[in-house]
Amino acid sequence: MDIESIKKEIVALIEESMGKKKLKPGDVFKKIVEIHPGATKDNAKAALRELMDAGTLVYSYKGGSYVEMPPK
């Protein structure tokens, strides 16, 4: 499975959810496995980790941990 394409899917997912529903990392993994044939939870985790390390996405906390776009 191509990690780069999963990374794009994750960023698109988070951008789309902004202002509507906060997504937890677990929600992201489940959604990616659902929409991306061949993707596994481990692929999705690796992709999210790369996005976090690069600062493309950030974690936030509001009673639980969520994934968000960094503040502009």
Partner: peptide, 16 residues
């Protein structure tokens, strides 16, 4: 309490 705060790559260890 909370919000976006932390160090790059980590989702824990800092409580805003």
């Amino acid at each position: 309490h909370g919000g976006i705060v932390g160090v790059r790559g980590y989702g824990g260890g800092v409580i805003g």
